[in-house]
């Protein structure tokens, strides 16, 4: 397919899925005429009409709740939550309804819906529009969680999510929409639930996802100049979590760092570090190091914002300290 952007790859995935499956509908604030707050759904209303691209009032709980009911009634809804920061508004419908319906009802029915949203820093959007709240989702059994880092996964991970029988929270990163790359729309880098290893070295493993993948690659390039060769694992999905790939590489390298933009305490990085420590204890030569968001809100000031979350420099410095 050639070169495209993360934003356009997402739109292509939605368009292709809607073409293939007439039961796929989009529902959310500004998804129609406006084309999505970040332009992901631009022009889809022209292609598929207002009955399949449904603009809603600003009513996040009922947007997600309507998606739950629609998914139980034979549709495959893709609800959009404009910012992941608003997930607290929807948490009842997400955590008490979507996540639990299959289990509470004894397996009678699943809720095959997607909640598309975006998070992260990078636009001076402030404390209520810049968070990385994937831990809220990962902490809720019954919800799948996908976080694409690349153009290829913007397309393929969304297509894969749309094939899941269970609810998927799909969190994009706002700083990635304009990034570009090659998209082969026939070939994903990995199947659903499997991590991708874009770089392989023997000295340490960096386990990451979403935008921090790119920071880890920048850090690894610098580290290579110092003679430190890093393996990088892009998890792609946090639920399912591909612990097998993590274990394989950590056992080989003996040093592991996890990198996440979410705040450190009780976060995704904490969970990953605990898993690695348990699974690979006999192979580890250092404690598993967490590089995560500071335990603070995000500022509007670009200087403060940038330093609230991991940077390539911080990742590289941490790796050097581990290997010194």
């Amino acid at each position: 397919m050639g070169k495209t952007t993360y934003r356009d790859a997402l739109r292509q995935a939605l368009s292709d899925s809607m073409t293939t499956d007439p039961n796929v509908v989009l529902i959310g604030e500004e998804v129609g005429r406006y084309g999505g707050a970040y332009g992901v759904t631009k022009s889809l209303i022209d292609e598929f009409g207002p009955e399949r691209v449904i603009d809603t009032p600003i009513s996040e709980p009922s947007i997600v709740g309507a998606a739950v009911g629609a998914a139980m009634s034979g549709l495959r809804p893709v609800a959009e939550l404009m910012y992941v920061d608003f997930i607290g508004m929807t948490m009842d419908q997400l955590a008490n309804q979507a996540a639990k319906i299959r289990y509470m009802f004894g397996g009678q029915i699943g809720v095959p819906m997607i909640l598309r949203t975006q998070g992260g820093t990078g636009r001076s959007a402030g404390a209520q529009h810049s968070q990385s709240l994937e831990a809220y989702v990962m902490h809720t059994p019954g919800l799948r969680l996908a976080m694409p880092a690349t153009v290829s996964d913007a397309y393929h991970l969304l297509r894969q999510s749309l094939a899941q029988p269970d609810p998927v929270v799909f969190i994009e990163h706002k700083a990635l929409y304009a990034t570009s790359g090659e998209l082969d729309d026939q070939t994903p880098v990995a199947p659903w639930g499997k991590a991708h290893v874009p770089r392989q070295g023997d000295d340490l493993v960096i386990v990451t996802y979403s935008r921090q993948l790119h920071y880890a690659i920048l850090a690894a390039d610098k580290l290579a100049k110092d003679g430190i060769e890093a393996t990088i694992i892009d998890l792609r999905t946090l639920n399912p979590l591909d612990i097998d790939t993590i274990r394989t590489h950590v056992e080989r390298c003996g040093h592991a760092m996890v990198v996440s933009e979410g705040v450190m305490t009780a976060g995704v990085a904490a969970e990953l570090a605990a898993r690695i420590s348990e699974e690979c204890f006999d192979f580890l030569e250092n404690p598993v190091i967490r590089i995560a968001g500071e335990d603070i809100p995000i500022s509007v000031s670009p200087l403060l914002e940038t330093n609230s979350v991991p940077t390539p420099e911080l990742i590289a410095d941490a790796a050097r300290m581990m290997r010194s």
């Binding site: 509908v25 529902i27 449904i54 709980p61 009922s62 997600v64 709740g65 309507a66 998606a67 739950v68 009911g69 629609a70 998914a71 139980m72 009634s73 034979g74 549709l75 809804p77 009842d92 419908q93 008490n96 309804q97 319906i101 509470m104 009802f105 009678q108 029915i109």
Partner: peptide, 27 residues
């Protein structure tokens, strides 16, 4: 709940089952 009888579920969250009927109506 019983899907065969159209019962999309009793709910222990007050109001929690209400938006489901909006989705069922859309479907």
């Amino acid at each position: 709940a019983d899907m065969k009888l159209g019962h999309l579920g009793a709910n222990a969250i007050v109001g929690g089952g209400i938006p489901s009927v909006v989705g069922a109506g859309l479907a």
